[in-house]
Amino acid sequence: MASPDDRLYFLLQRAAHRLRARADRLCKDAAGISTAQLGALFAVRDEPGITQQGLAGVLGLGESAVTALVARLEAAGLVDRRPHPAEHRAVALHLTGGGAAALEAVGPTIEAFNAELRALLGDEDFLRASAALALLAEPGHGA
């Protein structure tokens, strides 16, 4: 029988799928956005004027996926595209008032979701897991 150590990737996949599905439902209920849209809104908020290529790098997505994601965010009034001040062919992404309102609306939901995870794992394991996942999420790290 395989030990949990032998199945770490599989367990991460299952946990990520279950958590994403639950978080998607909660985010949709709270602010009408998905977790993918939430991640993009955080990135645009944290780096106003980010390009779609930059957003693709932050989110770990292909540029075509980000193009579609940004189109949905723009259609929903959550971000707008402006000419990039330095890159002739690029556009700069900016959060709209609607995007800022969506982030504000989803804030308590994210806090409650994290509180549930912290209660399940305990403070020490929650912080350890967060640090390990942040390391694995960095480009050039992980297996």
Rank of each mutant, 00 (worst) to 15 (best):
L136S: 01
L73R: 13
R18W: 07
F126Q: 01
P85Q: 02
L73K: 12
Q13E: 10
L133Y: 14
G60M: 15
Y9C: 12
A56H: 05
I33P: 12
L78V: 03
L73T: 15
P48D: 12
V79P: 01
G54R: 04
E74M: 12
E74I: 07
F42R: 15
E138H: 14
P139R: 09
R89H: 04
L41V: 08
A40L: 03
A105Q: 06
T96F: 11
L11Q: 08
A75D: 09
A65Y: 12
L95M: 12
Q52S: 14
A71V: 11
T109W: 04
D80I: 14
G140N: 06
R20D: 13
L95N: 02
L61D: 03
A129G: 04
G77V: 05
A76Q: 15
K28F: 12
V70N: 02
D5L: 15
E138G: 00
E47I: 09
G62N: 15
A143L: 09
H141P: 01
Q53R: 15
A76V: 02
A90D: 04
A71I: 10
L38E: 06
H88F: 15
E116K: 10
L127D: 13
F10N: 07
L11T: 00
P139Q: 08
A132Q: 02
L59E: 12
P83G: 00
Q13S: 04
E74C: 05
A112L: 10
A132P: 00
E104T: 15
L8M: 03
L69D: 10
E47D: 05
M1C: 05
A132E: 08
G39D: 15
L12R: 09
C27W: 02
E124C: 04
F126L: 02
R82N: 01
F42G: 03
F42K: 09
A137G: 08
R81Q: 08
G97S: 10
G142W: 06
I110T: 00
A143G: 07
V91G: 01
L59C: 06
A112I: 07
V70A: 07
L120G: 00
P108G: 07
P48W: 07
L95H: 04
A23F: 11
V58A: 11
A56I: 10
P83Q: 02
I50Q: 11
R25D: 15
E116L: 09
R18H: 05
G140A: 09
